[in-house]
């Protein structure tokens, strides 16, 4: 951990410049620019809402389905976008990796940071949704940053593993979209944990995102204290993934420039 902080201090400015570069460059050519960061999740929401509030009934605990869905879709979209960009980040910065010495962690981390703008924008939309559907303010909402921290730890861990592995096996970039789709369906985003048969629940909770998504819903929608057993499991799991991610990345990053 100390090592990480030291690296951060020394390379803070490069980190922000790289993140800023991604942010500035991404939508420079599109007419709608950053509106896309909001439009895409909203379109997803629209499609899923129409399908699931009419065709399949989801028990939402009295919460209108669009808000029930969006409270989970916003953090999931961030995870999915962040992991996708981070995975390709070493390869897309090949010219830097092979020419200048920088701690290689900086590339996946800056990629994740560059997605924070999208997250901020979708969060604003979520707040508007909460107002619109009359979800009142709850004290437990103040705990959302803690849940987000756990989620961020998980994202960084997974991103470090995938971005390093992608240097040696370029197939990962192709496999990961399938992997993320499967992961999404294994997580209670479009449905509710209640719909899972009791016998399968222990297996279901092995997925660290289950505890995290349910914690978000508890804190934002139901006003329930979100720190429960599944969430604690998710936190420990995420820390473990982060530690392994750093170890794995460090071990392999020596050979990045040989291979790219």
């Amino acid at each position: 951990m100390k090592e990480i902080i030291d690296i951060y201090k020394k390379y803070k400015e490069v980190f922000w410049q790289l993140a800023y570069r991604e942010i500035k460059a991404r939508y420079k050519q599109s007419v709608l620019g950053y509106a896309w960061a909001v439009i895409v999740p909203l379109l997803n929401l629209l499609v899923l809402s129409v399908v699931f509030s009419n065709l399949f009934r989801v028990p939402t605990g009295g919460i209108p389905y669009p808000v029930f869905l969006f409270a989970a879709l916003v953090p999931w979209t961030f995870l999915s976008n962040a992991i996708t960009t981070a995975t390709g980040s070493i390869i897309s910065n090949a010219s830097l990796v092979t020419k200048v010495y920088l701690p290689r962690e900086i590339f996946p981390l800056a990629a994740i940071a560059s997605k924070s703008i999208d997250l901020l924008l979708t969060c604003l939309v979520l707040v508007i949704f909460l107002f619109f559907y009359g979800v009142s303010f709850k004290l437990t909402m103040l705990l959302v940053p803690i849940i987000f921290l756990v989620q961020l730890i998980l994202i960084i861990g997974v991103s470090l593993i995938l971005s390093a592995a992608n240097v040696f096996f370029r197939d990962i970039e192709n496999i990961q979209s399938v992997f993320l789709t499967i992961w999404m369906y294994l997580t209670p985003i479009i449905y509710s944990t209640e719909q899972i048969p009791e016998s399968l629940k222990p297996l279901f909770y092995l997925n660290p995102m289950t505890g995290i998504i349910n914690a978000y819903r508890d804190a934002i929608l139901f006003g329930k204290f979100p720190v429960n057993l599944p969430f604690i499991y998710s936190s420990i799991f995420s820390l473990f993934i982060l530690a392994f991610g750093f170890y794995f990345f460090r071990k392999n990053s020596k050979y990045f420039a040989d291979v790219i």
Binding site: R21, K24, A25, K28, Q29, N93, S95, L96, T98, K99, V100
Partner: peptide
């Protein structure tokens, strides 16, 4: 000075 402009972003 190994390769000039390594890390330039074309859109910026």
């Amino acid at each position: 000075l190994i390769e000039l402009g390594a890390g330039f972003h074309p859109e910026l």
